[in-house]
Amino acid sequence: MNVREISAAAITGAVKQAFMDLNYHIGSDILSALQTAQQTETSPVAQNVLSQLLENHRIASEEEIPICQDTGMAVLFIQYGEQVVIRDGHFEEAVQEGVRQAYTDGYLRKSVVDDPVFDRVNTKDNTPALLYTDIVPGDKITILAGCKGFGSENMSAVKMLTPSAGLEGVRQFILDTVHYAGPNPCPPIVVGVGIGGTFEKAALLAKKATLRPINTHHTDERYAALEDELLTAINTMGYGPAGLGGQTTALGVNIETSPTHIAGMPVAVNICCHAARHKTITI
């Protein structure tokens, strides 16, 4: 097996650039969905909110400042090619250093506290980032990087449905979660859904679903149809942009699925604000 060497510094540099880019420049999928929504909304308040969001994204991109002050907790889904050997350092440390440098040099907000209950002291460099790594064949490292604000993260939920709940149970739990979130998660939202696996797998799939471009569909046409159906249903709820009313409560619904246990049907709903920030890099 051929071995490919990648320096730790190259990993750090690529991760740093990815987190700066994704915080300054919103994806074209979100931009075009916001533009479409602005044309279809009929209420002046909703149109005004959408105009402000589009103007916000233009300013952020032009001035290279964050789209949103909540630059999130850094999450990375990594596909690590098994032929790669890291030179002059360690992989995870190199990634953490990239995140540290992005948040420090890139004027991103440091939003991570060291202990969840007792101390809650800011780590001052937004580390630790959360890494989910799969070892795959090949000599490349592919990283799907994302950061999402906690306003929408707090509106997310996992439910251990059982098989008899069926499609209707899945549909109802997703809609209930969005309904409960209401005006809080910075609508128009992106709804990431993970179905199957185990308790934690469903949640990971849901997070990954929020990082998928919204102009894509699940590869199984039955789930693809469910994505479209749920989007339509959510947009009749009336929350609208900024929760001030309108037809655009969600920009997209992305579902990811996994095999599961005979006794279970876990469903996780990870709600993301309209600033659905993600970037894929290959090293």
Partner: peptide, 26 residues
Amino acid sequence: AIGGAAALISRSIKKAEVLAYEDLGT
């Protein structure tokens, strides 16, 4: 205020000074 319009909103903030709890950072 419009959630997520942070860059736009910051243009209307002309001055920022810490009044209390500087240790809390942001």
